[in-house]
Protein backbone atom coordinates (compact mmCIF):
# COMPACT_ATOMS: atom_id res chain seq x y z
CA UNK A 1 0.00 0.00 0.00
CA UNK A 2 2.81 2.34 0.94
CA UNK A 3 4.48 1.66 -2.35
CA UNK A 4 1.35 2.49 -4.35
CA UNK A 5 1.08 5.92 -2.73
CA UNK A 6 4.65 6.62 -3.72
CA UNK A 7 3.88 5.62 -7.25
CA UNK A 8 1.05 8.09 -7.41
CA UNK A 9 3.18 10.88 -6.02
CA UNK A 10 6.14 10.44 -8.31
CA UNK A 11 4.25 9.73 -11.46
CA UNK A 12 2.15 11.89 -13.71
CA UNK A 13 0.52 8.84 -15.23
CA UNK A 14 0.33 5.17 -14.44
CA UNK A 15 -0.97 2.97 -17.24
CA UNK A 16 -2.19 -0.53 -16.41
CA UNK A 17 -2.92 -3.22 -19.02
CA UNK A 18 -4.06 -0.80 -21.69
CA UNK A 19 -5.52 -2.19 -24.91
CA UNK A 20 -6.83 0.07 -27.63
CA UNK A 21 -8.82 -1.01 -30.67
CA UNK A 22 -9.77 0.88 -33.82
CA UNK A 23 -12.73 -1.26 -34.84
CA UNK A 24 -11.27 -4.75 -35.15
CA UNK A 25 -7.69 -3.58 -35.33
CA UNK A 26 -5.78 -3.64 -32.07
CA UNK A 27 -3.51 -0.59 -32.07
CA UNK A 28 -2.14 -0.93 -28.53
CA UNK A 29 -1.45 -4.24 -26.81
CA UNK A 30 -1.27 -4.56 -23.06
CA UNK A 31 0.65 -1.36 -22.33
CA UNK A 32 2.03 -0.86 -18.82
CA UNK A 33 4.00 2.29 -18.24
CA UNK A 34 4.66 4.87 -15.52
CA UNK A 35 5.34 8.41 -16.68
CA UNK A 36 7.51 10.21 -14.10
CA UNK A 37 6.74 13.75 -12.97
CA UNK A 38 8.83 16.66 -14.27
CA UNK A 39 10.79 14.55 -16.69
CA UNK A 40 10.81 14.32 -20.44
CA UNK A 41 9.57 10.95 -21.59
CA UNK A 42 10.07 10.08 -25.25
CA UNK A 43 8.08 7.55 -27.27
CA UNK A 44 10.01 6.18 -30.23
CA UNK A 45 9.33 3.52 -32.83
CA UNK A 46 8.53 3.11 -36.52
CA UNK A 47 5.40 4.62 -38.10
CA UNK A 48 2.19 2.88 -37.08
CA UNK A 49 3.67 1.43 -33.90
CA UNK A 50 1.02 3.08 -31.71
CA UNK A 51 3.15 5.72 -30.03
CA UNK A 52 0.92 8.64 -31.07
CA UNK A 53 -2.17 6.62 -30.20
CA UNK A 54 -0.86 6.09 -26.69
CA UNK A 55 -0.02 9.79 -26.40
CA UNK A 56 -3.59 10.73 -27.32
CA UNK A 57 -4.89 8.46 -24.55
CA UNK A 58 -3.49 10.77 -21.88
CA UNK A 59 -5.82 13.66 -22.76
CA UNK A 60 -8.50 11.38 -24.19
CA UNK A 61 -8.25 12.77 -27.70
CA UNK A 62 -9.04 9.24 -28.87
CA UNK A 63 -12.59 9.86 -27.64
CA UNK A 64 -13.04 11.85 -30.83
CA UNK A 65 -12.41 8.81 -33.00
CA UNK A 66 -15.68 6.93 -33.20
CA UNK A 67 -14.23 3.47 -33.77
CA UNK A 68 -11.69 3.71 -30.94
CA UNK A 69 -12.30 1.48 -27.91
CA UNK A 70 -10.15 1.37 -24.81
CA UNK A 71 -9.66 -1.31 -22.18
CA UNK A 72 -7.44 -1.00 -19.14
CA UNK A 73 -6.64 1.84 -16.78
CA UNK A 74 -4.82 5.14 -16.94
CA UNK A 75 -4.29 6.82 -13.57
CA UNK A 76 -3.51 10.50 -13.31
CA UNK A 77 -2.47 10.75 -9.65
CA UNK A 78 -5.29 8.80 -8.03
CA UNK A 79 -7.94 9.39 -10.67
CA UNK A 80 -8.71 6.92 -13.42
CA UNK A 81 -9.14 9.32 -16.34
CA UNK A 82 -11.93 7.34 -17.98
CA UNK A 83 -13.97 7.38 -14.79
CA UNK A 84 -17.49 8.76 -14.80
CA UNK A 85 -16.63 11.63 -12.48
CA UNK A 86 -13.86 12.83 -14.78
CA UNK A 87 -14.74 15.85 -16.91
CA UNK A 88 -12.78 15.45 -20.12
CA UNK A 89 -12.75 19.22 -20.68
CA UNK A 90 -11.20 19.63 -17.22
CA UNK A 91 -8.68 16.88 -17.96
CA UNK A 92 -7.51 18.68 -21.09
CA UNK A 93 -6.80 21.84 -19.14
CA UNK A 94 -4.47 19.79 -16.93
CA UNK A 95 -2.96 17.80 -19.79
CA UNK A 96 -2.04 20.14 -22.65
CA UNK A 97 -1.10 19.08 -26.15
CA UNK A 98 1.10 20.31 -28.99
CA UNK A 99 0.48 18.81 -32.41
CA UNK A 100 2.72 17.73 -35.28
CA UNK A 101 1.61 20.52 -37.60
CA UNK A 102 1.59 23.94 -35.92
CA UNK A 103 -2.12 24.75 -35.70
CA UNK A 104 -2.59 28.34 -34.55
CA UNK A 105 -6.16 29.58 -34.85
CA UNK A 106 -6.71 32.19 -37.57
CA UNK A 107 -6.85 35.01 -35.03
CA UNK A 108 -4.35 37.33 -33.38
CA UNK A 109 -1.32 36.09 -31.44
CA UNK A 110 -2.89 37.49 -28.27
CA UNK A 111 -6.25 35.80 -28.84
CA UNK A 112 -4.51 32.49 -29.54
CA UNK A 113 -2.76 32.50 -26.18
CA UNK A 114 -5.80 33.86 -24.34
CA UNK A 115 -8.12 31.31 -25.96
CA UNK A 116 -7.85 28.58 -23.33
CA UNK A 117 -8.42 30.95 -20.42
CA UNK A 118 -11.32 32.65 -22.15
CA UNK A 119 -12.93 29.25 -22.67
CA UNK A 120 -12.63 28.80 -18.91
CA UNK A 121 -14.55 32.03 -18.45
CA UNK A 122 -11.66 34.38 -17.61
CA UNK A 123 -12.57 37.85 -18.85
CA UNK A 124 -10.40 40.13 -16.70
CA UNK A 125 -8.12 41.92 -19.16
CA UNK A 126 -5.30 42.32 -16.61
CA UNK A 127 -5.16 38.60 -15.89
CA UNK A 128 -5.27 37.80 -19.60
CA UNK A 129 -2.52 40.34 -20.37
CA UNK A 130 -0.34 38.86 -17.68
CA UNK A 131 -0.88 35.24 -18.70
CA UNK A 132 -0.30 36.03 -22.38
CA UNK A 133 2.99 37.70 -21.52
CA UNK A 134 4.29 35.01 -19.17
CA UNK A 135 3.21 32.19 -21.48
CA UNK A 136 4.89 33.77 -24.48
CA UNK A 137 8.01 34.40 -22.40
CA UNK A 138 8.10 30.79 -21.23
CA UNK A 139 7.71 29.67 -24.82
CA UNK A 140 10.66 31.91 -25.80
CA UNK A 141 8.51 33.81 -28.25
CA UNK A 142 7.79 37.05 -26.37
CA UNK A 143 10.69 39.07 -27.77
CA UNK A 144 9.73 38.23 -31.32
CA UNK A 145 6.03 39.05 -31.07
CA UNK A 146 5.64 41.56 -28.23
CA UNK A 147 5.31 44.46 -30.67
CA UNK A 148 2.63 42.86 -32.79
CA UNK A 149 0.41 40.84 -30.51
CA UNK A 150 -2.53 41.84 -32.71
CA UNK A 151 -1.04 40.35 -35.82
CA UNK A 152 -2.76 37.30 -37.23
CA UNK A 153 -0.95 34.23 -35.90
CA UNK A 154 -1.03 32.52 -39.29
CA UNK A 155 1.46 35.15 -40.51
CA UNK A 156 4.20 33.84 -38.17
CA UNK A 157 6.89 31.45 -39.41
CA UNK A 158 6.44 27.71 -38.84
CA UNK A 159 8.81 27.64 -35.87
CA UNK A 160 7.18 30.69 -34.31
CA UNK A 161 3.76 29.13 -34.83
CA UNK A 162 4.84 25.99 -33.02
CA UNK A 163 6.23 28.00 -30.11
CA UNK A 164 2.94 29.90 -30.08
CA UNK A 165 1.12 26.58 -29.79
CA UNK A 166 3.37 25.70 -26.86
CA UNK A 167 2.60 29.09 -25.27
CA UNK A 168 -1.09 28.37 -25.83
CA UNK A 169 -0.76 25.05 -24.02
CA UNK A 170 1.24 26.65 -21.18
CA UNK A 171 -1.33 29.42 -20.69
CA UNK A 172 -3.55 27.02 -18.75
CA UNK A 173 -0.61 26.03 -16.49
CA UNK A 174 -1.12 22.35 -17.14
CA UNK A 175 0.81 19.64 -15.28
CA UNK A 176 1.61 17.67 -18.38
CA UNK A 177 2.33 18.71 -21.96
CA UNK A 178 1.91 16.08 -24.66
CA UNK A 179 3.92 16.68 -27.81
CA UNK A 180 3.17 14.75 -30.96
CA UNK A 181 6.26 15.02 -33.17
CA UNK A 182 6.38 18.76 -32.55
CA UNK A 183 9.40 19.43 -34.74
CA UNK A 184 8.80 17.14 -37.70
CA UNK A 185 7.40 20.00 -39.78
CA UNK A 186 10.21 22.41 -38.86
CA UNK A 187 13.67 23.23 -40.19
CA UNK A 188 16.79 22.39 -38.13
CA UNK A 189 17.18 25.86 -36.59
CA UNK A 190 13.54 26.04 -35.48
CA UNK A 191 13.86 22.46 -34.25
CA UNK A 192 16.84 23.22 -32.02
CA UNK A 193 14.99 26.21 -30.56
CA UNK A 194 12.04 23.98 -29.66
CA UNK A 195 14.39 21.36 -28.18
CA UNK A 196 16.07 23.96 -25.96
CA UNK A 197 12.62 25.08 -24.93
CA UNK A 198 11.54 21.55 -24.00
CA UNK A 199 14.60 21.12 -21.77
CA UNK A 200 13.74 24.45 -20.12
CA UNK A 201 10.07 23.52 -19.71
CA UNK A 202 10.66 20.24 -17.92
CA UNK A 203 11.57 22.19 -14.77
CA UNK A 204 7.91 23.11 -14.47
CA UNK A 205 6.05 20.53 -16.53
CA UNK A 206 5.94 16.84 -17.22
CA UNK A 207 6.54 16.33 -20.92
CA UNK A 208 5.70 13.33 -23.04
CA UNK A 209 7.04 13.58 -26.56
CA UNK A 210 6.51 11.36 -29.57
CA UNK A 211 9.39 11.64 -31.98
CA UNK A 212 10.63 10.07 -35.17
CA UNK A 213 14.08 11.39 -34.57
CA UNK A 214 16.13 9.11 -32.36
CA UNK A 215 18.80 11.75 -31.93
CA UNK A 216 16.13 14.09 -30.63
CA UNK A 217 14.96 11.51 -28.10
CA UNK A 218 18.57 10.99 -27.03
CA UNK A 219 19.20 14.73 -26.72
CA UNK A 220 16.19 15.84 -24.73
CA UNK A 221 14.54 12.94 -22.94
CA UNK A 222 15.15 11.37 -19.55
CA UNK A 223 13.12 8.26 -20.21
CA UNK A 224 12.51 6.50 -23.52
CA UNK A 225 9.92 3.92 -24.49
CA UNK A 226 10.35 1.91 -27.66
CA UNK A 227 7.20 0.71 -29.42
CA UNK A 228 6.74 -1.84 -32.17
CA UNK A 229 3.45 -2.97 -33.74
CA UNK A 230 1.34 -1.78 -30.82
CA UNK A 231 3.53 -3.28 -28.13
CA UNK A 232 5.86 -1.49 -25.79
CA UNK A 233 9.08 -3.41 -26.27
CA UNK A 234 11.26 -1.62 -23.79
CA UNK A 235 11.06 1.31 -21.39
CA UNK A 236 13.99 2.62 -19.42
CA UNK A 237 16.33 5.54 -18.83
CA UNK A 238 17.20 7.13 -22.14
CA UNK A 239 20.90 6.36 -21.60
CA UNK A 240 20.20 2.69 -21.17
CA UNK A 241 17.85 2.49 -24.15
CA UNK A 242 20.43 4.07 -26.42
CA UNK A 243 23.59 2.48 -25.09
CA UNK A 244 22.64 -0.78 -23.53
CA UNK A 245 19.18 -1.90 -24.57
CA UNK A 246 17.90 -5.19 -23.20
CA UNK A 247 15.91 -6.23 -26.23
CA UNK A 248 17.46 -7.12 -29.56
CA UNK A 249 14.64 -5.36 -31.46
CA UNK A 250 15.36 -2.11 -29.63
CA UNK A 251 19.01 -2.37 -30.52
CA UNK A 252 18.17 -3.09 -34.17
CA UNK A 253 15.90 -0.04 -34.34
CA UNK A 254 18.35 2.25 -32.53
CA UNK A 255 21.19 1.18 -34.78
CA UNK A 256 19.07 1.82 -37.86
CA UNK A 257 18.60 -1.78 -39.03
CA UNK A 258 14.91 -0.99 -39.65
CA UNK A 259 12.70 1.99 -39.17
Amino acid sequence: MRQQTDVKLDNAFVVNDLDLYYGDFQALKNINIKIPLNKVTAFIGPSGCGKSTLLRCFNRMNDLIESARIEGEIYHHDTEIHGKEVDVVQLRTVVGMVFQQPNPFPMSVYDNVAYGLRCQGVKDRRILDEVVETSLKQAALWDEVKDHLNRNATKLSGGQQQRLCIARAISLTPEVILMDEPTSALDPIATSKIEDLIIELKKSYTIIIVTHSMSQAARISDMTAFFLLGEMIEYDDTDIIFHNPADQRTEDYISGKFG
Binding site: N59, M61, L91, R92, M97, C165
Partner: peptide, 21 residues
Amino acid sequence: PESHELGSLALGASRTQTNFK
Protein backbone atom coordinates in the same frame (compact mmCIF):
# COMPACT_ATOMS: atom_id res chain seq x y z
CA PRO B 1 -9.08 22.32 -41.12
CA GLU B 2 -9.68 19.65 -38.50
CA SER B 3 -6.43 20.65 -36.81
CA HIS B 4 -8.06 23.90 -35.61
CA GLU B 5 -10.81 21.95 -33.94
CA LEU B 6 -8.45 19.45 -32.34
CA GLY B 7 -6.28 22.31 -31.12
CA SER B 8 -9.29 23.93 -29.51
CA LEU B 9 -10.56 20.74 -27.89
CA ALA B 10 -7.08 19.94 -26.61
CA LEU B 11 -7.10 23.33 -24.87
CA GLY B 12 -10.09 22.29 -22.80
CA ALA B 13 -12.70 24.03 -24.94
CA SER B 14 -16.10 22.41 -25.10
CA ARG B 15 -17.68 21.33 -28.40
CA THR B 16 -19.91 24.39 -28.42
CA GLN B 17 -17.06 26.76 -27.65
CA THR B 18 -15.02 25.13 -30.40
CA ASN B 19 -17.84 25.42 -32.92
CA PHE B 20 -18.53 29.07 -32.22
CA LYS B 21 -15.09 30.43 -31.42
